[in-house]
Design a protein around this nucleic acid. Sequence first.
DNA 1: AATAAAATTTAGACAAAACTAAAAATATTA
DNA 2: TAATATTTTTAGTTTTGTCTAAATTTTATT
Lengths: 220, 220
Amino acid sequence: MPFTTSEENYIKSIYHLQQASGMVNTNTLAAEMQTRAASVTDMLKKLKAKKLLQYERYRGFRLSEAGKKAALDVVRKHRLWEYFLAEHLKFDWDKVHPIAEELEHISSDELVQRLDNFLGNPSFDPHGDPIPDRNGKIPVINQLSLTDIPLKKPVRVSSVSNQSAQMLEMLKHYHIALGTQITVLNHFSFDGSLEIKVLKHSPCIISEPVAKNVFVHYVQ
Amino acid sequence: MPFTTSEENYIKSIYHLQQASGMVNTNTLAAEMQTRAASVTDMLKKLKAKKLLQYERYRGFRLSEAGKKAALDVVRKHRLWEYFLAEHLKFDWDKVHPIAEELEHISSDELVQRLDNFLGNPSFDPHGDPIPDRNGKIPVINQLSLTDIPLKKPVRVSSVSNQSAQMLEMLKHYHIALGTQITVLNHFSFDGSLEIKVLKHSPCIISEPVAKNVFVHYVQ
DNA sequence: AATAAAATTTAGACAAAACTAAAAATATTA
DNA sequence: TAATATTTTTAGTTTTGTCTAAATTTTATT
Ligand SMILES: [Mn+2]
Ligand SMILES: [Mn+2]
Ligand SMILES: [Mn+2]
Ligand SMILES: [Mn+2]
């Protein structure tokens, strides 16, 4: 089963959307992929014919087991390449995504396996997202949104759920990166913003929309 | 000027063919690219429209300066990726080509520059072929075909001009790789075959077609 | 020079992946 | 429940890159 680049991009997007919401619908996927609903419908028919998803027209769709496996394979490649770009080529974490978006479609299985070994079989990509192993198994960690952390408890950043260039640039400005140690000093109920102390920097205030997307785990 | 994968494959093939023969013709290119002459003609029109080549129908074609530059860029990417695959991922030299054939189309200029630096700005790929620098400048070395080497003069393998899987497998069998030291012991005029001594191995005989494709330079 | 052979191009078709505009189905609301 | 709005699909095009078969041009041979 060799898939086209376009098919791979579709199943990957469907995989991410159905993580959140179970069933996926046409317009949501079209928005996610920056394309038109009609184009999505066209592709859904192809993917259904290849038994990569369950789909009844007008009723929404979700990946089959085969589809999920194919999606996880693309996710694995994407995150391994991101790791390579950040760790070895010294790209900033907010620059790796669009390049990995291309590299994830290189087809050699042996390449992926050798890359994985070369990188030291990493478990998380530069954004803190888990890297599936060759069987599609995903490592898990206990993490909480920064908005749910009690005051004065030091935590460490483990991932960010919004990875837009804008978001990542903003975090860079706050000196927040993966592994950064943070303490929440205050919780302002007026707008939900947080006063935080980033280790080695002066306290600052971040808005609720930012805080919500920063995931952390307790230190030790 | 972003080129499609297909356009890049065409200009790269034209570049290689015109190195040997100046002007390139339709059937030769079709054979090289494992496609049909009609498809070549179609693409020639597109490439001419983009001013990447000089072409008059029925008369053959050659790359323009812009076309040559674009081709060298693809060649550069191809060889840098081959170097990465062989040197860091420990692929055998006879396995890297088809993967680099895909990787060479990844579009980020910054990626290429960082990859080049990461690799230590190598001058030659795993087959001994020169890697153009970012300006398209190609390093040169004095090398001769093994068929033109006098007896008893030790030489070192610097490149092989036929890089088919069959050829590379055969060289592996003879324990010949890049950098291998060889001495020619005999020249059999009957069929042009050579008796050679590969350093650390017993003498053996290689056919003229093999010898012709092995390029070497004198030791010291 | 006429004819045959080879090389090349054109004409027409097809598949993949996208689009727009219109039709159909489903969901919402008055 | 009937009318309206939203969502989704269908119908018909477009672009890119490929193909086969036929026509054209060039080259080689009698
Ligand atoms: Mn992609
Ligand atoms: Mn990531
Ligand atoms: Mn290629
Ligand atoms: Mn090479």
